[in-house]
């Protein structure tokens, strides 16, 4: 890790003032589980670290009439332990359960989980976010891409977004609030995620001098939700594909469906076609399977990740069936 200076402000105003106008000036430290690894691997080398954990207003989870407010500093463990969340938003709880390390859950924050950087092994080995060789040629399409993107992978980004919570939150219609020098910005979480076009871009709409302050999830009355992860190990492991599904029900028929896949694309991936096929239908094995197929309609495998198409189809199918059963597996 390269040397840096460290500050630990107590208000969000102080925090953003301490941040820089470019990414190499400063990084936000929250849980630290990803950031410190990135710094040890030399993927980022900020001159200053701004620890936001002492900013009290960023903490806490509250459920009320307007839905759910998750402070950016709420930990994954707090999310898991929150009864209101598991009762009304099983998709979120199930996504959090997939992060099987209690240590990561205790340190890791929601804000950090959404802003974590790709686990692409070329990126982590120092080939840059877009993983190119010295001549600028991309390494992923002809390299070992077994864990890379099957959707949105026309380039130049081939990695998958690593967030486990984002698909669930997007499926449930969450918004994200950011705070920067110009005050508060709010946007759909779906729009928060972006696909980088250059190696200096990031994977979110966050600017270098902004922080995530909270996530707002609307009430889930009449909504059935679930997350299904295809993950190899019970030990801490990255999913190979995930799907989160939220079904607004009218009786036993789906009124509106939202389906979001994770670990399949450089950003959480909304499956619009699949959502439409569920509308006004009762959930059956056949409908769920059809949705799974449609969800992967535009998928393109790289040289050795074709199997992920199958995994994502299964994840979508199983998440839909789970959601219809009220979030039970």
């Amino acid at each position: 890790m390269r040397a840096f200076e460290y500050a630990s402000p107590t208000t969000k105003e102080q925090a953003v003032s301490l941040l820089g106008n470019s990414w190499d000036e400063a990084e936000v430290l929250a849980g630290g589980t990803d950031l410190l690894s990135l710094m040890k691997d030399g993927c980022v080398a900020p001159k200053r670290l701004v620890n936001i954990k002492e900013i009290r207003e960023l903490r806490g989870i509250s459920a009320g009439g307007g839905g759910l407010r998750i402070g950016a500093l709420a930990t994954i463990q707090e999310l898991l332990d929150n009864r209101a969340v598991s009762r009304a938003y099983p998709a979120i709880t199930q996504a959090a359960e997939g992060i099987t390390s209690p240590q990561i859950r205790s340190l890791g924050t929601i804000g950090g989980e959404l802003c974590q950087r790709p686990r692409c092994w070329y990126y982590r080995a120092g080939y840059g976010l877009l993983a190119t060789d010295e001549q600028g040629e991309p390494l992923v399409p002809s390299g070992d891409n077994r864990y890379h993107a099957i959707l949105g992978n026309a380039g130049p980004a081939y990695f998958v977004h690593a967030s486990s919570l984002a698909p669930a939150l997007i499926a449930l219609g969450a918004k994200v609030r950011l705070f920067g020098p110009d005050g508060v910005r709010e946007m759909w979480l779906d729009q928060f995620f972006t696909t980088p076009l250059t190696a200096d871009d990031r994977e979110t709409a966050l600017k270098p001098n902004e922080i995530v302050t909270e996530i707002i999830v609307p009430t889930a009355l009449g909504v059935k939700s679930a997350t299904y992860e295809v993950r190899q190990r019970e030990a801490l492991d990255w999913p190979l594909a995930t799907a989160s599904v939220a079904l607004s029900m009218s009786g036993d028929r789906v009124r509106v469906a939202r389906i979001v896949m994770g670990h399949v694309a450089p950003r959480p991936w909304r499956a619009a076609e699949a959502e439409q096929v569920l509308a006004e239908k009762a959930v059956t094995e056949e409908v769920a399977q059809k949705a799974g197929e449609l969800a992967l309609n535009g998928a393109n495998s790289l040289s050795r990740n074709g199997y992920k198409i199958q995994l994502a189809r299964v994840a979508v199918k199983r998440a839909i069936l789970m959601a219809a059963r009220g979030g039970r597996g």
């Binding site: 077994r146 040289s303 050795r304 990740n305 199997y307 198409i309 199958q310």
Partner: peptide, 8 residues
């Protein structure tokens, strides 16, 4: 995994 399972 030479494109294992693609299109299954």
């Amino acid at each position: 995994s030479k494109n294992g399972g693609n299109d299954a």
